[in-house]
């Protein structure tokens, strides 16, 4: 066991985690943040994507101990302080980018990491940023549209 302290969605947390625990299980089980999903447990599907220190990571492979002292963002923390949806959440809903929704939290977080760094991406950049997130339902078209629309929205 190791004691770690990190920030999740703006809140500091301290907890004991086992050395081999991954961040996904700590989020899902210890912190009861169920948004990040396990689709493969092997870093291949992106359903578990969260943002650590500004970078999108697959939390199923990310050692929980590594999160010590870092800033973690999950889909649960996306809602703006005003209480309204983050533009990405809004556009995912409005553009039909959500079907079964299993990929959605990871998809949204990968997109957020992109837009936080590059507020003005072109279509190809969006596709590259989301390349690690598999979606079996939508065929991605409406997801890419939603991300580009959110980028527009955020410029306003």
């Amino acid at each position: 066991m190791k004691t770690i302290t990190f920030t999740v969605n703006g809140n500091p947390v301290t907890l004991d985690v086992s050395e081999d625990a991954n961040l996904l299980s700590v989020l899902n089980d210890d912190l009861e943040l169920a948004g990040a999903k396990e689709g493969c447990g092997a870093g291949e599907c992106g359903a578990c994507t969260v943002i650590v220190d500004g970078v999108a990571v697959t939390s199923c492979l990310y050692p929980a101990c590594e999160a010590d002292g870092r800033v973690v963002e999950t889909v649960e923390g996306l809602v703006l302080e005003s209480g309204s949806l983050h533009p990405l959440q809004r556009t995912f809903v409005d553009y039909g980018a959500v079907q079964c929704g299993f990929c959605t939290p990871g998809m949204v977080m990968s997109a957020k990491a992109l837009l936080d760094k590059y507020p003005n991406p072109n279509e190809q950049e969006v596709k590259v940023a989301l390349a690690g997130n598999i979606c079996r339902c939508t065929g991605y078209t409406q997801i890419v549209e939603a991300v580009l629309a959110a980028a527009e929205e955020m410029k306003k």
């Binding site: 948004g35 809602v79 409005d94 079907q99």
Partner: peptide, 21 residues
């Protein structure tokens, strides 16, 4: 009409409950 999927809101919030949860 192009009406968003009813549960999309819960899904983008990470609140939709799947069996795994």
């Amino acid at each position: 009409k192009r009406i968003p999927k009813s549960d999309a809101l819960y899904k983008v919030l990470g609140q939709a409950q799947y069996i795994y949860d």
